[in-house]
């Protein structure tokens, strides 16, 4: 149990998707102009991560890893399908996003309106595929660990994009050198925020 909690805290603050691994930077820079939309996208990422990472974990564990097919019988014990993992992961993510979109539209129209255009865009957000690939690299022991990792990373991303949006809303009133406006200053602020987040490492 403490293990699971540790993974959660670690993925929110220390291994933050944006500040430590630069995942999902494209949408992070493009959509962080207002806190409201940033929060919407952050929630959607959180949600999709929480669904796709555990699903990919199960697929990886029972279908793709070397020896994962042992449950089918003796003859399958040394089959290694791990070279397929990239294609399968991206297919699962694209499919899941499509499925989620339909389910949410049907049963939770309020949430659907709130997420809006962001939901389909998420299929090509590298934070999502990155979540699955890091999950594979870290070899979590159970599916619950991978779920806590997914939720943690999603929240970390949400935290990063909303705080960035809040800073950028304030930035409108700052006197920045002309060529640095827009993306230039956004990169530098992200770097400084990343430096701040490194304090959680505890040297």
């Amino acid at each position: 149990m403490p293990d699971i909690f540790n993974i959660f805290i670690r993925s929110v603050f220390i291994d933050n998707m944006v500040f430590a691994y630069f995942l999902g930077m494209c949408s992070y820079l493009a959509v962080s102009k207002s806190v409201k939309t940033a929060g919407g996208l952050g929630l959607a990422v959180c949600f999709v991560l929480a669904v796709t990472v555990p699903v990919n974990y199960l697929i990886d564990k029972y279908l793709l890893q070397p020896g994962a097919l042992a449950w089918l019988g003796e003859g399958f014990a040394d089959v290694d399908l791990s070279f397929l993992s990239l294609i399968i992961f991206i297919a699962v993510i694209a499919g899941m996003v499509q499925l989620l979109e339909m389910v949410i539209e049907r049963h939770m129209p309020a949430l659907y309106m709130a997420l809006g255009i962001f939901l389909p865009l998420i299929a090509v957000n590298c934070a999502i595929l990155g979540g699955s690939l890091f999950m594979q690299e870290r070899n979590f022991p159970t599916v619950i660990h991978s779920f806590s990792y997914a939720i943690g990373s999603g929240l970390g991303w949400l935290l990063a994009i909303t705080s960035m949006a809040a800073i950028r809303e304030r930035l409108k009133y700052a006197n920045i050198p002309e060529p640095l406006r827009g993306n230039g200053i956004a990169y530098i602020i992200t770097g400084l925020m990343g430096l701040g987040f490194m304090a959680f490492l505890g040297f």
Binding site: E178, P179, I185, I188, G194, M198
Partner: peptide, 19 residues
């Protein structure tokens, strides 16, 4: 070597290019 410095360097590159 730390990750944040990459972001700051790219920011500076955009600045130089822009000016």
């Amino acid at each position: 070597i730390l990750p944040p410095m990459a972001l700051i360097l790219v920011g500076v590159m955009i600045w130089i290019r822009g000016s």
